[in-house]
């Protein structure tokens, strides 16, 4: 399952605080949701942290976000590792990402690479279309004849090809958009749009969403039995 973390700016604006404090408040929610997902037995969790379009935000806000993410990653690295969570960062291709942050991302991936408890994919500097274009490029480079390309062989060229299709996407703050998020993987996903803003989103909201999804699930069919770390068939 996946979360689009929306509403930090509005959360801050409602309190007459600078936008940056909304991002800061989001940290608590992130940790809360990770814990709740792990306890509820979710094996694959993706969080949409920063899109390729977010670079258009004012440079002071972007700089602040970079510093904040670095602090958060470092602060919670040991905890995530101790919880048996495998962390991965999807995207992270732009040269504007500070090298120190990229190093921390790589370190966290190295540190937790052997964990099998839950896989946490953080989409940072991510764009769904860009991933598809990259997969197409890699496919062409590998010289596969056009007739041999099907959905499964195409998906094998996406970044982190072992990521299963997303079953449920939660987008907070009531906005109902996809915003270029993991386009390939959300093809059959159920979407939920709780009105609560991301900094106010808590474990209880998360469990409510999961419950709603299970209700819907009863109508739409079974859960795909993917195992952590296993390649797609």
């Amino acid at each position: 399952m996946a979360c689009v973390m929306d509403g930090n700016g509005r959360w801050a604006a409602r309190r007459s605080l600078p936008r940056t404090s909304g991002h800061r408040a989001a940290e608590t929610t992130v940790i809360d949701v990770i814990e709740a997902a792990r306890t509820a037995g979710v094996e694959w969790l993706s969080l949409y942290a920063f899109s390729t379009e977010n670079w258009r935000r004012p440079s002071t806000e972007v700089d602040f976000l970079m510093r904040l993410v670095r602090r958060v990653v470092r602060k919670h690295a040991a905890l995530l590792h101790a919880r048996g969570i495998r962390c991965r960062f999807l995207g992270v291709a732009d040269p504007r990402i500070p090298p120190a942050l990229a190093r921390d991302f790589a370190d966290l991936m190295t540190l937790t690479g052997e964990n099998r408890g839950m896989t946490l994919t953080v989409a940072f500097d991510h764009g769904g279309r860009r991933d598809i274009v990259a997969a197409a490029r890699s496919l062409i480079r590998s010289g596969v004849p056009a007739e041999a390309v099907d959905e499964r062989s195409f998906a094998a060229h996406l970044p982190f090809p072992d990521t299963p299709d997303v079953d449920l996407v939660i987008r907070t703050s009531g906005e109902q958009r996809i915003s270029n998020f993991m386009l390939w993987q959300v093809a059959y996903a159920e979407w939920l749009f709780p009105p609560v803003l991301w900094p106010d989103f808590r474990a209880t909201h998360f469990l409510e969403c999961l419950h709603t999804y299970r209700q819907r699930d009863r109508r739409f069919g079974g859960v795909t039995p993917y195992t952590n770390g296993e390649r797609r068939p």
Partner: peptide
Amino acid sequence: MKRAGALVRLLAPLPPEPDP
């Protein structure tokens, strides 16, 4: 060793924030 190195680097205190 790599994982230990990664952990050590992640746990090391950050230098003070540079003046923007």
